[in-house]
Amino acid sequence: MTDGMFGTKGSGDTSGYGGLVPQVTMAGSSQRPFGSYFDDVTDDLERAYPEFSDAIERVVVDRGELTLHVKRERLVEVAFTLRDTLKFEMCMGVSGVHYPDQTGRELHAVYPLLSMSRNQRIRLEVSVPDGDAHIPSVVEVWGGNNWHERETFDMFGIVFDGHPGLTRILMPDDWNGHPQRKDYALGGISVEYKGATMPPPSDRRSYT
C-alpha cells in the first residue's frame, strides 16, 4: 500500500487530511445584558441566592437560550431556590452529554427548567470529571427526575447521590458498561449480502 501525500492510512478518511482533528468550540461565557427575560432571571437568582458567583461558574446565552453552569455541590440549593423563589416548577428531565476531550469536565448533565407561571425556560448544566462522576440528586426538588436520573446513570455512568433507587432502567439489569458514552462502541454487526458483507455504520468510511 502506497503512502499518500497527506499521510492517510487505509481507506477511512477521504477528506485527504489524514488525522485532522477540528477544534470544537462551544459557546463561551456571555456578557450582560443577556436580552429578553434572562437578565431578570439572573438578577432574581442573585438576589435570592447570595452565593451566586460562587455557585454559578458560567452564564451562557446562546441561540436564544440561557444556560447556567452550576457547581455540583451547590446544585440542590440552587434548584430549591429556582423552584421556590423563581417559580420554575417543572424540570423537563436530565440529559447527559459526554465530551471526552474536555478533560476534567467530561460528563455534563443538562436540566431544562420550565416556569409555567412566568412562561420562561432556562437550562442548568453541571459538569463532572470522568473518574469522579457524582452529582447530588434533585429528586427532592422535582420528583419527576427520578427516572431521568436513572436513565442518565444507565447511559452515562453518572451516579446521583441521594437518589432513592439508582438502578438501570433502559438496559437489562446486569448489563456492563454505559452505552451512550463516546467510548462505548455502537455494537453493530456486519450485514451479510450475497457475495459481500457490509460493516456497521460505526465502522464504515466517514466522509467528514
Binding site: T25, M26, M92, T208
Partner: peptide, 30 residues
C-alpha cells in the same frame, strides 16, 4: 455550528422536547 438547543412542542401526549448538541460537524453530537 457548535452549540446546544432545546425545542419543545406539544405532542398528543404532552411536551416533547428535543435537546440537540452539535460540535460543528456533519453528525449530531448528542
Amino acid at each position: 455550528p457548535a452549540g446546544q438547543a432545546y425545542v419543545a412542542i406539544e405532542s398528543p401526549r404532552g411536551e416533547l422536547g428535543a435537546s440537540v448538541v452539535s460540535d460543528g460537524g456533519t453528525r449530531p453530537y448528542r
